[in-house]
Design a protein around this nucleic acid. Structure first.
Lengths: 210, 210
DNA sequence: AGCTTAGGTATACGCTGTATATATGTCAAG
DNA sequence: CTTGACATATATACAGCGTATACCTAAGCT
């Protein structure tokens, strides 16, 4: 049943995963599902646990920075394979075993690297959902009309109202293959990891502990 | 009507804001709302625009880093006053005028600070929803039983399964007043801004542009 | 043989967004 | 003063949702 639910969610998304549809996919009455799961939320909990438990982390004993990176990129590989995982994780209200294990592994790596409990704590918050390998993308901006004549006018009006956006959007880097979700994700992740490392080396302490 | 919708959402959350309830709050049939708004999504769009347009940014011409910080903290002040804004922004599929203006202002500050279009582009992605002043918090972990005897056993089992979590959770910093959403937000924001600045000074370029 | 129990079914309730068709009240033009 | 247009509110209805409740059936154990 979990497999069927995951397959269905892969196909129709989290919103499309209704108890009725899942029942239909299994050739069973919707209410039959409630013999296996208390309610829809619990079903989604179990689906998330299944995915998180399956994170494929490459074995390596390297420094903490590399381990964190590897674990998070492993999470990313799994969570991007299943589009529904993002909204699912974002709406979970309680961590399950697999979720706790992932978090524990990240924190353990930092502890082994010598980071203070203080810094580990803040680092986890700073990572936020990035520890699961995803971020909300910046909101999509309206696209220009296809028609050539109206397009120029629209672009001009656009450049007047939002000059910085247009300036950025018209650079080669944005138009080129560089604007890639994976690249952006790693860029931000490395800034955070660099930041943690720097604070660690300079003996940072939170105000509360200073 | 927008005011009523915002007031209702403040009270019952975004999910609680149904067309029927809003109609009731206005003493009007649900379908009456559709004379003013195409559908529920468009209503939420308008609500978000209203909030974003009301960001209260303190005037200052300082360096780009301070301006970004001030704008984002202004956004945070507004979006945390209304709990529904987070889920609302996260589900918007297209940026409106106010949203574009906010993004434009952030990018403009960076351009005036001399950052390359390349870096500005990546920085915006790295900020992600943080540019609106919020982050998903790390998932809540189960709390220990209140009963003293079972509590000790639960804690022991917990420490066995998730040693790093327990180690972190049992430090003073976490138990104390330091674990504060605001503090965590600023901590992560400053790491990102520091990172942008550092990359700017060392003349970073994306691989694509290298 | 009889009981428990796991699993499936049927029906129904209250909730959602919204399509469609109809009514009302205001105001400008003839 | 009437007439028609337009903005607004209404009434009804449909398809979907999660799930409470009650019932049934077959397998397994004592």
């Amino acid at each position: 049943m979990l497999n069927a639910a995951i397959a269905l969610a892969d196909e129709v998304g989290l919103d499309g995963l209704s108890m009725r549809r899942l029942g239909q996919a299994l050739g069973v009455t919707p209410m039959a599902l409630y013999k296996h799961v208390a309610n829809r939320e619990e079903l989604i909990d179990a689906m998330v646990e299944r995915i998180v438990a399956g994170f494929d982390v490459p074995i390596q004993d390297d420094d903490w920075r590399h381990e964190l990176r590897a674990r998070i990129l492993a999470a990313r590989a799994a969570t991007t394979r299943h589009g529904w995982v993002r909204p699912a994780i974002e709406t979970r209200t309680m961590a399950g075993d697999a979720v706790l294990s992932h978090m524990d592994a990240l924190m353990d790596a930092m502890f082994r690297g010598g980071l203070s409990a203080d810094l580990v704590h803040h680092a986890m918050h700073a990572l936020s959902t990035r520890m699961w390998g995803f971020t909300r993308d910046v909101m999509p901006t309206p696209s220009l009309p296809a028609d050539a004549s109206t397009r120029a006018a629209a672009l001009a009006a656009y450049a007047e109202a939002y000059p910085a956006i247009v300036r950025m959007a018209s650079t080669a880097s944005q138009a080129g293959a560089d604007c890639n979700e994976e690249t952006e994700f790693v860029f931000a992740l490395d800034i955070l990891l660099d930041g943690f490392e720097r604070l660690h080396h300079t003996g940072w302490r939170s105000e509360f502990n200073a």
